[in-house]
């Protein structure tokens, strides 16, 4: 999708790998300056930055764990310090701690909630002021089809991903008069490190049976939708959920 985001600055959480990496690269290719947030994979984040800058774009890597208490303002400040502004926030960082609810430990619930939901809320909150200053803002949060369908063994993860949808709609309502939109994307099964580790050949075949398009998605499939929602082209779209899932759910 040839969308022009030049002059815009974006922060992408969890951008060193997988879907976040593809989003950062796509935003960079569209002309946005990109803050590539990572938690542990510094080398991978630097590689994403290098790819963007070598293509003539602007990018920096910023370390920060979105589940940590003091990270949120710092991430936003690092972005605005580097680029002078913040227009686009992509809440992409997410974790899983799968277990059946019967056996799920409180820690497994807290970890997932802290990163996937509380982290998104606090980071979004911190991003609002610079966006209000611009009178323009785009917030795109990565939910999941698991937030729509549920999944055995992922009660904690499903709750956060469904919670994000309600959060997104509320932010959309609160910020509409400021020309800030908030939308969510529900990826289906996407080829990433996370799914490669979780999917045995057997599970993979079973998953594919449920995907009408007959293939796993690519991170680029998701990045394409993100760039669209982050652009002027989506100015009248807010509070929405887009499933990019090869026809899995069709909700």
């Amino acid at each position: 999708m040839h969308i022009d985001l030049s002059g815009r600055a974006a922060l992408v959480t969890g951008a060193s790998r997988g879907i976040g990496r593809a989003i950062a690269l796509a935003l960079g290719a569209s002309g946005a300056a990109v803050a590539v947030n990572y938690r542990g994979s510094e080398a991978a984040a630097n590689e994403v930055v290098a790819q963007i800058t070598q293509a003539g774009g602007k990018a920096i890597a910023i370390q920060g764990d979105v589940s940590a208490a003091a990270t949120h303002e710092a991430l936003i400040k690092a972005t605005t310090a580097a680029f002078g502004r913040l227009d686009i926030l992509i809440n992409n960082a997410g974790i899983t701690r799968d277990n059946l609810l019967l056996r799920m430990k409180a820690d497994e619930i807290d970890d997932v909630l802290n990163t996937n939901l509380r982290g998104v809320m606090l980071l979004t909150k911190a991003a609002l002021r610079p966006m209000m200053k611009n009178k323009w803002g785009r917030i795109v949060s990565m939910s999941s089809i698991i937030g729509l369908t549920g999944n055995a063994g992922q009660a904690n993860y499903a709750a956060t991903k469904a919670g994000l949808l309600g959060f997104t709609k509320s932010v959309a309502l609160e910020m509409a008069s400021r020309n800030i939109t908030a939308n969510a994307i529900c990826p289906g099964f996407i080829e990433t490190d996370m799914t490669a580790a979780a999917l045995t050949a057997d599970l993979r075949a079973k998953a594919l049976e449920r995907v009408p398009l007959g293939r796993l998605g690519t991170p680029e499939d998701i990045a394409n939708a993100v760039v669209f929602l982050a652009s002027d082209a989506a100015a009248y779209i807010t509070g929405q959920t887009l499933a990019v899932d090869g026809g899995w759910t069709m909700y």
Partner: peptide, 16 residues
């Protein structure tokens, strides 16, 4: 062509 992984969806464009 690039949006090859969305199907059966409805996108609402309604200003919220």
């Amino acid at each position: 062509r690039e949006s090859g992984y969305m199907t059966g969806q409805t996108i609402t464009v309604d200003g919220g």
